[in-house]
Design a protein around this nucleic acid. Structure first.
Length: 693
DNA sequence: ATAGGGTTAG
């Protein structure tokens, strides 16, 4: 989540990105090359050749032609008519099966080899092994490995690598220890396996070990994995050490290796070091660009990230789905919809793969920016929206308090044969919570284990507690907590505290707060919420104690900040902050609004402010809450009737919520406010949350 | 004629 200081640093990078000319047609036409027409015309020419070869009983060569065109199924069909194809034909066939991960076809080829009485040499055996390993069928690979007449180092390597690749590290290690001789490849396979399985320490132990063994000098692949291991440990010391090996061994002329070094420095938080390496790479490819851009974003250096993306767009390298995903995620984090839309436009012009990650990032960007219609549009326009896109959209509808829409897309997800995962259920449950559909929510909660073959996660329990707490079902909530199979998380206690605050349940609130004080004593939200609960109940003494305790520990309430985007510029407001250039106008406008609101029946919720201040002063404090400032500013800065959007870092307060309802009616504006938990859509004096949040 | 490394969400 974005905080206000990040928001401040931003403001005017929009526009700078797409200034450069978009000469993107080459990329689009390149894409179109792979379409059906092109493919079919190739088949026609080849088809004539294949037909002729078949008529001459030259099936082996016909199969080779089909293999060349990756027409695997046809090739395997022909194999049935070829009695004794040459070894090279088998070799080609297995290769294509391997490349396209076609296990079914691969098995047919293997069967044919067995039936024809052909005696494979070691190379064919190894390729068969490799084919099964590539297809992830280690069971079949192992069978081949056991029955082959002799094995060379490559056979062992393929097995070790195969096991390591699918994460069966113990099995890989057993073979690795057993094998008669090990070369660089064997060591690399193990090192890489450990890195992939998130065991960087093990990886580096092996890496050090191999350097003392003859015949196993690290090569670019090994060091590249070692660098990734250091990155995974975020250990700059080891990283620099390996960087040293690389330079000393003269391996530092490989572009991919540069790129992994850059990634390592970036992940260790040395962004400037990473940039240095990036600048030294002569042939930068998309991966190095994307990696650098993303590093900037991950360390909140938004401006530098966007400006590098802009440079990429202007260069001759083309961004790919990874790049788009990264940039869109940044737009989503910053809730900068205008910029996100520009990126979307650019993607459409250069042609992006609608089946890729980029699609789901688009959905997420629009959802987080509060434009659920556009998010839906992306999903509806996608030939086959994936699980992440649908889950994102469901979450969006949940946050907008639209359970019907959320559940509609959940149905769609099930009907298209996808398996929902635990995140999907978090969003489905949240849809029920935000709409107060308690029974339905409970039903979904139980269906997770009973119907969908998943286990309940800590997140699911948090959702359940949220569902029950927001609807005031505290008895049921207590029994859920006492019976749940894992330790309640801080999020669960925070949900419970939130519900207690709504219903003024002081006893349970204290219980939740006790737990939170243990887990995260430094979080001001707990103290403030407790103080507010006491204040609302008129328990001034307890309230004072709570505030004093905060002072003693030395923590302060996180300042509320709200922001809004006007004409591609972000304006950030902090409570009672008068530094905005239009502050006087905003103040005056809020004054006018307040009079009109009172005529319509608005009563300031003064109990929310410190009790030792006079009533009039309390009212003053409320007026300058950041979201009121942002709303007033947005109205002043846009044409009459324009819908406005405001984002807030904390949960919306009761007074602002009620005030904005009046403001929407008086000014005839549609006002969307996204607080830390959901979207509130105000129109004509009503809020989409129906005061349930 | 046989294996392998770097960037990606909800």
């Amino acid at each position: 989540m974005m905080n206000h200081s990040n928001a401040r640093k931003l403001s005017t990078f929009h526009g700078l990105i797409f200034k450069s000319n978009l000469s993107s047609s080459s990329y689009a036409s390149q894409k179109r090359f792979s379409d059906k027409k092109f493919f079919n015309s190739k088949l026609e020419d080849g088809g004539v050749v294949v037909e002729r070869l078949c008529r001459a009983n030259r099936f082996g060569e016909a199969i080779d032609v089909l293999c060349g065109q990756k027409l695997l199924r046809e090739a395997v069909q022909l194999l049935g008519r070829a009695k004794k194809p040459p070894a090279s034909t088998y070799c080609n066939l297995i290769q294509v099966c391997s490349q396209t991960r076609a296990l079914e076809e691969g098995k047919k080829v293997h069967e044919h080899i067995r039936a024809s009485g052909f005696v494979p040499g070691i190379v064919i055996w190894n390729r068969l092994l490799g084919m099964y390993a590539k297809c992830g069928s280690l069971f079949d690979a192992r069978k081949v490995f056991e029955e082959m007449p002799n094995r060379d180092v490559c056979s062992w390597n393929v097995m070790v690598n195969g096991y390591a690749e699918v994460g069966l590290l113990e099995e890989a290690r057993k073979l690795f220890d057993e094998m008669p001789e090990r070369d660089s490849y064997s060591w690399t396979a193990m090192v890489t396996g450990y890195v992939k399985k998130d065991q960087p320490e093990e990886a580096l132990v092996l890496y050090s070990l191999m350097q003392r063994v003859p015949n196993s000098k690290p090569n670019i692949f090994t060091v590249s994995s070692a660098v990734a291991a250091a990155a995974g440990m975020k250990c700059i010391r080891r990283g620099k050490e390996i960087h040293g090996h690389i330079v000393r061994a003269g391996l530092d002329s490989d572009e991919v290796l540069w790129s992994s070094l850059m990634d390592m420095y970036g992940k260790c938080g040395c962004i400037d070091e990473a940039r240095n390496i990036f600048d030294k790479i002569i042939d930068k490819d998309v991966v190095s660009w994307t990696s650098m851009i993303d590093r900037y974003f991950k360390s909140s250096r938004w401006r530098e990230g966007f400006s590098l993306f802009s440079e990429l767009v202007g260069s001759c390298e083309r961004p790919n789905e990874y790049t788009f995903a990264g940039v869109l995620n940044a737009c989503a984090d910053l809730t900068t919809e205008e910029l996100g839309k520009q990126v979307h436009g650019y993607m459409t012009r250069v042609g992006f793969d609608p089946y890729s990650f980029a699609s789901s990032s688009l959905v997420d960007m629009y959802t987080k920016c509060g434009n659920i219609e556009s998010a839906r549009h992306v999903v509806d326009g996608c030939p086959k929206p994936d699980l992440v896109s649908l889950t994102s959209l469901i979450g969006g509808y949940a946050q907008n308090g639209k359970p019907d829409e959320a559940l509609k897309y959940f149905d769609l997800l099930l009907k298209s044969g996808m398996k929902p995962d635990h995140v999907t259920f978090v969003n489905v449950l949240s849809a029920c919570t935000h709409a107060g559909l308690v029974e339905k929510g409970l039903e979904f909660f139980y269906s997770i284990t009973e119907k969908h073959d998943l286990t309940h996660t800590s997140d699911h329990y948090t959702c359940l507690v949220d569902l029950l707490a927001r609807s005031g079902r505290f008895e049921q909530l207590k029994s859920v907590i006492s019976e749940m199979p894992m330790k309640p998380s801080k999020f669960l206690w925070a949900s419970m505290l939130g519900g207690c605050s709504t219903y003024g349940n002081i006893d349970l609130a204290e219980e939740a707060a006790q737990e939170l004080f243990k887990i995260e004593p430094e979080n001001p939200v707990t103290y403030v919420t407790m103080a507010n609960i006491y204040a609302a109940a008129g328990k001034w003494e307890e309230e004072g104690k709570m505030r004093k305790r905060m002072q003693e520990i030395g923590i302060t309430k996180q300042p509320g900040s709200s922001w809004t985007e006007i004409k591609r510029k972000r304006h950030v407001f902090i409570a009672a902050d008068t530094s905005h250039p239009m502050y006087n106008q905003i103040d005056e406008f809020l004054g006018e609004l307040r009079e009109k609101m009172k005529e319509e029946g608005y009563v300031p919720a003064t109990s929310l402010v410190l009790h030792d201040v006079e009533d009039e002063q309390k009212e003053e404090n409320l007026v300058y809450h950041s979201e009121k400032l942002a709303v007033a500013f947005a109205i002043l800065s846009t044409e009459e009737g324009t819908a406005i959007k405001v984002f807030k870092n904390l949960r919306s307060c009761v007074d602002c919520h009620s005030a904005i309802k009046f403001i929407s009616k008086i000014t005839k504006r549609k006002i969307t406010v996204r607080d830390s938990t959901r979207f509130h859509c105000f129109e004509n004096g009503q809020c989409s949350c129906r005061d349930y949040w």
